[in-house]
Amino acid sequence: MKLINALLISLCVSGGSLLYLGNVSAKDSASLTSRNSASIAPDRTIALKPIAQAKPSLAVLALDSQGLRVVNASTGATRAIAFGTKEADVISILTNLRGKPRDRGVNQECGAGPLSFARWADGLSLQFNKGRFAGWSIDGRSKGANKLTTISGIGTGSTRTQLNKAYTVKVSQSTLGTEFSAGSLGGLLSGRKPTDRVTSLWSGTTCFFR
């Protein structure tokens, strides 16, 4: 499969390094675009701009097992927002791309200890541990949650068949329900049938009570 060329550069946002992690295939780029944006104007200069200042209309936020990614789907250029990035930098980037979070606060009773969080109306929640980006989760019950996907096009609303085609998946029953893991990604399914769908998705440090 032909890969879309992207510039191999790193950039800093308020002192936090955001590094290029790899090219995006034409198939994955098209999949991401179709679920996240009706049209993304072509602009090859986004790869040279600090993503905290990138035009939201030119950028797509993608979920990643190691954090988040900002993608220019027209060129395949990506920038990682990796776990461990400073909380202030992550909030600055996400606020620029999708507006201020609906809720901010601290979960005091998480297994990993107190975690601060930022939550948007479409079900995206970010968790921070000691001022650093630690994890994210998506609640599929929220309106618009299915527009947030991985580079491979997997998000809430994806079927188990689609999930199995994109990743090597292990499924088990837990107190949360039908739970799956796909490498560092985790989530819940509505059932065990091929047509059942992903209802939530997460990676990194989360705050679920089992």
Rank of each mutant, 00 (worst) to 15 (best):
L115K: 05
I91H: 02
N164W: 00
Q66S: 15
A77F: 10
S65W: 02
A80L: 12
R104C: 03
G111I: 03
V106Q: 10
K147E: 14
S57W: 02
L97D: 05
I81M: 08
K55I: 10
I93N: 07
R104E: 15
S137C: 00
T175K: 14
K130Q: 14
Q173I: 09
T75V: 05
R98L: 10
L126E: 04
A112S: 15
A182M: 04
G99Q: 11
A166V: 06
K55M: 08
D139V: 00
A118L: 01
S137T: 11
V106R: 11
P114N: 09
G105D: 10
P56W: 11
K147M: 11
L185Y: 12
G123K: 07
G157E: 03
P56K: 06
G123W: 09
K143R: 15
D139E: 11
V60A: 15
Q66E: 11
I138E: 05
F117T: 03
S172R: 14
V169M: 07
V169G: 06
R132V: 11
S137D: 13
T150C: 05
A59H: 03
R119N: 11
A73M: 02
Q53W: 03
N146T: 14
D139T: 03
Q53A: 14
S184E: 06
Q108V: 09
L94S: 07
N96L: 04
N146E: 12
Y167I: 00
T75I: 04
T78N: 12
S137V: 00
E87I: 02
